[in-house]
Amino acid sequence: MRAFPNRELRHNLEAYTFLAPALTIMIIFLAYPVLNLFYISFFDWRGLGARHFVFLDNYKMLLRNEEFRLVFKNTLIYILGVVPTTMVFSLFAAVLLNSKIKLRGFYRTSIFSPTAISFVATGIIWVWMFNLDYGLVNRVLNALGFSVIDWLRSTPWAMVAVIIATVWARVGYFMVIYLAGLQTIPEDYYEASDIDGANSLQKFLHVTLPLLKPTHVLVLVMLTIFSFRDFDQIYTMTGGGPLMSTTTLAYYIYVLSFERFRFSQGATVAVILLFLVILVQYLQRKVFGEEAIY
C-alpha cells in the first residue's frame, strides 16, 4: 500500500520530464506573454519610459475612436469577403476533383500549389497582376471594354484586391479539407439516391452538402481564424492603405505598436482580437456542438 503513492509520484515525475521542454517554452513564450498582454493594456506606455496605470482607459478610448471603428469594420468586410468565397470555391474544387477524371493528381497539385508560396510572394504576384498600367487584370478589363481600375490605390478596390489574392492562395488548402470530408461520405448514400433516380445536382444538394456539415463548420471556423491573422499580403500589397482601408485588426496591432510605438494601445487591440478569436471558437462549440481542434 505504501509503495502506491510513490509509484504514482514516479509516474507523474516521469511524464512531466517528457513534457518539460514543450511546457517550459509554452509557459515562458506563450502563457506569460498572454498574461502580460492584459497587464500592458491597463497602462499608458510607449515601450520606453514611464508607465502610468490607467486601467480600462485604453479600452474606453479605443471603442470611442473612429479609426478603431474603421479598422473593426475593415476586418468584418475582409472576413465576409474571404470566408464565404473561399468556402464555395474550395468545396466546388473538391467535388470536381473527387470525381474519377484523368490527370486528377495534376489538377489537385496545381490548385493546391499556392499553399506552398509565402504570402509575401502571393502579395507581390498580385501587386503585379493589379498594376494600373501593365497588370494583367487591367489588360483583360481593357480588352473586354471596361475602364481600368487603380486597384491598389483606390478605396473600395484595394480591399477587393487583397481579398482576391487571399482567396486565390487559400482555396487549395481548404479543398484538401473538403476532399478529406468527402471521403467520409459512404458510397451507399449515392447508390441509394441513384436508385431513387436522382441527378448529379440533386445528389449534391441532398447528399453531399448536408453530410459535409462537420466539414463546413470546421472550414468556416478555420478560415475565420486564419483571416483574423492575415498580415503579410496586406503588408506587401497595400501597407494597410489607402486611407487605412485595408487595415484589419491584426495589421492595426502592428501599426500601433511598431509604427507609432503605442505599445499599450497595440496590446489593447491584441486583447480584443484574442477575445474575438475565442468567441469564434466558443460559438462553434455552442452552436454546432463540434469538437474540432481549431
Partner: peptide, 23 residues
C-alpha cells in the same frame, strides 16, 4: 495540458507580439 496545447493554436504571432517583444 492537452486542452492547453490545443487552445494555444488560437494565439497568433500578432496577438502576443507586444509582450513577446518586451520579453
Amino acid at each position: 495540458i492537452f486542452s492547453i496545447a490545443i487552445a494555444s493554436m488560437l494565439i497568433s504571432e500578432q496577438i502576443i507580439i507586444v509582450p513577446l517583444y518586451v520579453l
